[in-house]
Write a protein that binds this DNA or RNA. Structure first.
Lengths: 112, 112
DNA sequence: AACACTATTCTGCGATACTATATACCAGTA
DNA sequence: TACTGGTATATAGTATCGCAGAATAGTGTT
Protein backbone atom coordinates (compact mmCIF):
# COMPACT_ATOMS: atom_id res chain seq x y z
CA UNK A 1 0.00 0.00 0.00
CA UNK A 2 1.43 3.31 -1.06
CA UNK A 3 0.76 6.95 -0.39
CA UNK A 4 -0.55 6.41 3.09
CA UNK A 5 1.78 9.07 4.47
CA UNK A 6 -0.84 11.41 5.77
CA UNK A 7 -2.88 8.63 7.28
CA UNK A 8 0.11 7.53 9.31
CA UNK A 9 0.46 10.89 10.97
CA UNK A 10 -0.19 10.61 14.62
CA UNK A 11 -0.30 6.83 14.57
CA UNK A 12 3.26 5.98 13.60
CA UNK A 13 4.59 7.31 16.87
CA UNK A 14 2.09 5.15 18.72
CA UNK A 15 3.20 2.12 16.74
CA UNK A 16 6.81 2.81 17.67
CA UNK A 17 5.84 3.14 21.32
CA UNK A 18 4.03 -0.19 21.13
CA UNK A 19 6.99 -1.90 19.51
CA UNK A 20 9.38 -0.57 22.14
CA UNK A 21 7.00 -1.70 24.86
CA UNK A 22 7.40 -5.31 23.73
CA UNK A 23 11.07 -5.27 24.65
CA UNK A 24 14.14 -3.09 24.23
CA UNK A 25 14.96 -2.35 20.62
CA UNK A 26 16.71 0.17 18.42
CA UNK A 27 15.81 2.38 15.50
CA UNK A 28 16.90 0.18 12.67
CA UNK A 29 15.09 -2.83 14.10
CA UNK A 30 11.95 -0.78 14.70
CA UNK A 31 11.99 0.20 11.04
CA UNK A 32 12.18 -3.46 10.05
CA UNK A 33 9.27 -4.35 12.34
CA UNK A 34 7.16 -1.65 10.75
CA UNK A 35 8.04 -2.92 7.30
CA UNK A 36 7.14 -6.46 8.29
CA UNK A 37 3.87 -5.14 9.64
CA UNK A 38 3.06 -3.91 6.16
CA UNK A 39 4.23 -0.32 6.24
CA UNK A 40 6.80 -1.20 3.63
CA UNK A 41 7.68 2.35 2.71
CA UNK A 42 8.83 3.43 6.15
CA UNK A 43 12.45 4.46 6.07
CA UNK A 44 15.07 4.88 8.77
CA UNK A 45 14.92 8.64 8.67
CA UNK A 46 11.25 8.59 9.54
CA UNK A 47 11.77 6.34 12.54
CA UNK A 48 14.72 8.42 13.60
CA UNK A 49 12.62 11.58 13.83
CA UNK A 50 10.17 9.65 16.01
CA UNK A 51 12.74 8.19 18.36
CA UNK A 52 14.37 11.60 18.65
CA UNK A 53 10.98 12.99 19.63
CA UNK A 54 10.50 10.27 22.21
CA UNK A 55 13.90 11.13 23.68
CA UNK A 56 13.12 14.82 23.72
CA UNK A 57 9.83 14.21 25.52
CA UNK A 58 11.50 11.86 28.00
CA UNK A 59 9.35 8.88 27.18
CA UNK A 60 12.18 6.38 26.83
CA UNK A 61 15.30 5.20 28.59
CA UNK A 62 18.37 4.75 26.43
CA UNK A 63 21.26 2.35 26.56
CA UNK A 64 24.00 2.26 23.98
CA UNK A 65 25.41 -1.17 23.21
CA UNK A 66 28.17 -2.33 20.95
CA UNK A 67 27.39 -4.52 17.99
CA UNK A 68 29.52 -6.99 16.08
CA UNK A 69 27.93 -6.11 12.78
CA UNK A 70 28.12 -2.33 12.73
CA UNK A 71 28.14 0.83 14.77
CA UNK A 72 26.76 0.93 18.33
CA UNK A 73 23.01 0.57 18.71
CA UNK A 74 20.86 2.84 20.80
CA UNK A 75 18.45 0.58 22.65
CA UNK A 76 15.20 2.09 23.85
CA UNK A 77 12.87 1.03 26.64
CA UNK A 78 9.70 2.77 27.73
CA UNK A 79 9.77 4.55 31.05
CA UNK A 80 6.64 5.29 33.09
CA UNK A 81 5.79 8.39 31.07
CA UNK A 82 6.20 6.39 27.90
CA UNK A 83 3.85 3.69 29.13
CA UNK A 84 1.24 6.30 29.97
CA UNK A 85 1.67 7.85 26.56
CA UNK A 86 1.17 4.46 24.98
CA UNK A 87 -2.01 3.82 26.98
CA UNK A 88 -3.31 7.22 25.94
CA UNK A 89 -2.46 6.47 22.34
CA UNK A 90 -4.52 3.30 22.31
CA UNK A 91 -7.45 5.07 23.95
CA UNK A 92 -7.35 7.73 21.25
CA UNK A 93 -6.93 5.12 18.56
CA UNK A 94 -9.95 3.17 19.76
CA UNK A 95 -12.01 6.33 19.91
CA UNK A 96 -11.03 7.62 16.49
CA UNK A 97 -11.17 4.29 14.69
CA UNK A 98 -14.56 3.49 16.18
CA UNK A 99 -15.94 6.83 15.09
CA UNK A 100 -14.62 6.46 11.59
CA UNK A 101 -15.94 2.94 11.23
CA UNK A 102 -19.24 4.25 12.53
CA UNK A 103 -19.25 6.89 9.83
CA UNK A 104 -18.33 4.28 7.26
CA UNK A 105 -21.19 1.98 8.12
CA UNK A 106 -23.99 4.17 9.38
CA UNK A 107 -26.51 6.50 7.91
CA UNK A 108 -26.15 10.15 8.75
CA UNK A 109 -28.96 11.92 10.50
CA UNK A 110 -30.20 14.56 8.14
CA UNK A 111 -31.97 17.61 9.37
CA UNK A 112 -35.18 18.74 7.74
CA UNK B 1 -11.91 13.13 23.45
CA UNK B 2 -9.29 15.82 23.18
CA UNK B 3 -5.89 16.21 21.59
CA UNK B 4 -6.57 13.86 18.73
CA UNK B 5 -5.45 16.48 16.24
CA UNK B 6 -2.55 14.58 14.82
CA UNK B 7 -4.49 11.38 14.60
CA UNK B 8 -7.10 13.12 12.48
CA UNK B 9 -4.56 14.17 9.91
CA UNK B 10 -5.21 12.32 6.73
CA UNK B 11 -8.56 10.97 7.84
CA UNK B 12 -10.54 14.15 8.27
CA UNK B 13 -10.56 14.82 4.55
CA UNK B 14 -11.85 11.31 3.96
CA UNK B 15 -14.60 11.85 6.50
CA UNK B 16 -15.64 15.02 4.73
CA UNK B 17 -15.70 13.20 1.40
CA UNK B 18 -17.87 10.49 2.93
CA UNK B 19 -20.29 13.04 4.39
CA UNK B 20 -20.60 14.84 1.07
CA UNK B 21 -21.18 11.52 -0.69
CA UNK B 22 -24.33 11.00 1.37
CA UNK B 23 -25.97 14.02 -0.21
CA UNK B 24 -25.18 17.60 -1.06
CA UNK B 25 -24.13 19.67 1.92
CA UNK B 26 -22.13 22.75 2.86
CA UNK B 27 -19.21 23.57 5.12
CA UNK B 28 -21.06 24.65 8.20
CA UNK B 29 -23.30 21.59 8.12
CA UNK B 30 -20.34 19.28 7.57
CA UNK B 31 -18.74 20.73 10.69
CA UNK B 32 -21.88 19.93 12.65
CA UNK B 33 -21.95 16.37 11.35
CA UNK B 34 -18.37 15.86 12.43
CA UNK B 35 -19.16 17.24 15.87
CA UNK B 36 -22.15 14.95 16.19
CA UNK B 37 -19.95 12.07 15.14
CA UNK B 38 -17.80 12.75 18.18
CA UNK B 39 -15.08 15.01 16.82
CA UNK B 40 -16.37 17.78 19.02
CA UNK B 41 -13.38 20.06 18.67
CA UNK B 42 -13.56 20.42 14.91
CA UNK B 43 -14.23 24.02 13.96
CA UNK B 44 -15.47 25.73 10.82
CA UNK B 45 -12.04 26.92 9.79
CA UNK B 46 -10.69 23.40 9.71
CA UNK B 47 -13.49 22.15 7.52
CA UNK B 48 -13.16 25.17 5.31
CA UNK B 49 -9.52 24.39 4.53
CA UNK B 50 -10.59 20.87 3.58
CA UNK B 51 -13.43 21.95 1.31
CA UNK B 52 -11.12 24.48 -0.31
CA UNK B 53 -8.67 21.66 -0.95
CA UNK B 54 -11.40 19.51 -2.46
CA UNK B 55 -12.31 22.40 -4.75
CA UNK B 56 -8.71 22.96 -5.72
CA UNK B 57 -8.27 19.28 -6.56
CA UNK B 58 -11.52 19.25 -8.54
CA UNK B 59 -13.16 16.54 -6.45
CA UNK B 60 -16.45 18.34 -5.94
CA UNK B 61 -19.14 20.19 -7.82
CA UNK B 62 -20.35 23.42 -6.28
CA UNK B 63 -23.69 25.16 -6.22
CA UNK B 64 -24.37 28.34 -4.34
CA UNK B 65 -27.82 28.64 -2.83
CA UNK B 66 -29.52 31.35 -0.85
CA UNK B 67 -30.59 30.74 2.71
CA UNK B 68 -33.33 32.31 4.81
CA UNK B 69 -31.26 32.10 7.97
CA UNK B 70 -27.95 33.58 6.90
CA UNK B 71 -25.58 34.21 4.03
CA UNK B 72 -25.53 32.03 0.90
CA UNK B 73 -24.38 28.43 1.31
CA UNK B 74 -21.93 26.66 -0.94
CA UNK B 75 -23.34 23.20 -1.53
CA UNK B 76 -20.93 20.44 -2.47
CA UNK B 77 -21.49 17.18 -4.29
CA UNK B 78 -18.86 14.60 -5.22
CA UNK B 79 -17.97 14.29 -8.87
CA UNK B 80 -16.44 11.17 -10.38
CA UNK B 81 -12.93 12.04 -9.25
CA UNK B 82 -14.27 12.66 -5.77
CA UNK B 83 -15.94 9.28 -5.65
CA UNK B 84 -12.73 7.59 -6.71
CA UNK B 85 -10.83 9.51 -4.07
CA UNK B 86 -13.35 8.36 -1.49
CA UNK B 87 -13.01 4.72 -2.53
CA UNK B 88 -9.25 5.00 -2.32
CA UNK B 89 -9.56 6.59 1.09
CA UNK B 90 -11.56 3.66 2.47
CA UNK B 91 -9.12 1.17 0.99
CA UNK B 92 -6.26 2.93 2.70
CA UNK B 93 -8.22 3.21 5.90
CA UNK B 94 -8.99 -0.50 5.96
CA UNK B 95 -5.38 -1.33 5.28
CA UNK B 96 -3.94 0.98 7.91
CA UNK B 97 -6.52 0.26 10.60
CA UNK B 98 -6.16 -3.49 10.11
CA UNK B 99 -2.40 -3.28 10.41
CA UNK B 100 -2.58 -1.20 13.54
CA UNK B 101 -5.14 -3.45 15.17
CA UNK B 102 -2.89 -6.36 14.25
CA UNK B 103 0.00 -4.68 15.99
CA UNK B 104 -2.20 -3.97 18.97
CA UNK B 105 -3.30 -7.54 19.42
CA UNK B 106 -0.43 -9.68 18.21
CA UNK B 107 2.95 -10.68 19.47
CA UNK B 108 5.92 -9.42 17.54
CA UNK B 109 8.27 -11.90 15.99
CA UNK B 110 11.58 -11.41 17.67
CA UNK B 111 14.74 -12.35 15.94
CA UNK B 112 17.30 -14.54 17.73
C1' DA C 1 42.44 -0.68 0.12
C1' DA C 2 38.05 -1.22 -1.47
C1' DC C 3 33.63 -2.80 -0.73
C1' DA C 4 29.23 -4.34 1.45
C1' DC C 5 26.31 -4.30 5.18
C1' DT C 6 24.50 -2.44 9.35
C1' DA C 7 22.99 1.58 11.90
C1' DT C 8 22.61 6.29 13.46
C1' DT C 9 22.39 11.08 12.49
C1' DC C 10 21.11 15.37 10.22
C1' DT C 11 18.46 18.87 7.54
C1' DG C 12 15.00 20.92 4.88
C1' DC C 13 10.46 20.22 2.92
C1' DG C 14 5.46 19.52 2.00
C1' DA C 15 1.00 18.34 3.76
C1' DT C 16 -2.31 18.90 7.25
C1' DA C 17 -5.11 20.72 11.08
C1' DC C 18 -5.51 24.43 14.38
C1' DT C 19 -5.92 29.35 16.07
C1' DA C 20 -7.64 33.60 15.54
C1' DT C 21 -9.81 36.88 13.09
C1' DA C 22 -12.57 39.28 9.54
C1' DT C 23 -16.54 39.74 6.78
C1' DA C 24 -21.24 39.09 5.57
C1' DC C 25 -26.23 37.86 5.97
C1' DC C 26 -30.55 37.35 8.36
C1' DA C 27 -34.02 37.29 12.29
C1' DG C 28 -35.67 38.84 16.53
C1' DT C 29 -35.99 42.31 20.02
C1' DA C 30 -35.73 46.61 22.55
C1' DT D 1 -32.71 52.43 14.50
C1' DA D 2 -29.39 49.71 17.09
C1' DC D 3 -28.12 45.59 19.14
C1' DT D 4 -27.58 40.60 19.65
C1' DG D 5 -27.03 35.95 18.18
C1' DG D 6 -26.85 32.28 14.91
C1' DT D 7 -25.37 31.15 10.32
C1' DA D 8 -21.66 30.89 6.85
C1' DT D 9 -17.53 31.77 4.08
C1' DA D 10 -12.84 33.32 3.95
C1' DT D 11 -7.79 34.06 5.15
C1' DA D 12 -3.27 34.54 7.42
C1' DG D 13 -0.19 32.56 10.45
C1' DT D 14 1.56 28.63 13.29
C1' DA D 15 2.85 23.91 14.85
C1' DT D 16 3.32 19.14 14.08
C1' DC D 17 4.48 15.25 11.65
C1' DG D 18 6.30 11.98 8.25
C1' DC D 19 9.37 11.88 4.26
C1' DA D 20 13.42 12.33 1.10
C1' DG D 21 18.07 12.20 0.73
C1' DA D 22 22.46 12.25 2.18
C1' DA D 23 26.31 12.03 5.40
C1' DT D 24 28.70 9.56 8.82
C1' DA D 25 30.36 5.64 11.35
C1' DG D 26 31.47 0.98 12.66
C1' DT D 27 32.44 -4.02 11.35
C1' DG D 28 33.67 -7.87 8.43
C1' DT D 29 35.03 -9.61 3.79
C1' DT D 30 37.65 -9.85 -0.40
Amino acid sequence: MEHITEMLKGVLEGCVLEIISRGETYGYEITQHLRELGFTDVVEGTVYTITMRLEKHNLVDIEKKRSTVGPPRKFYTLNEAGKEKLDTFWEKWDFVSNKINELKSKEIKRRG
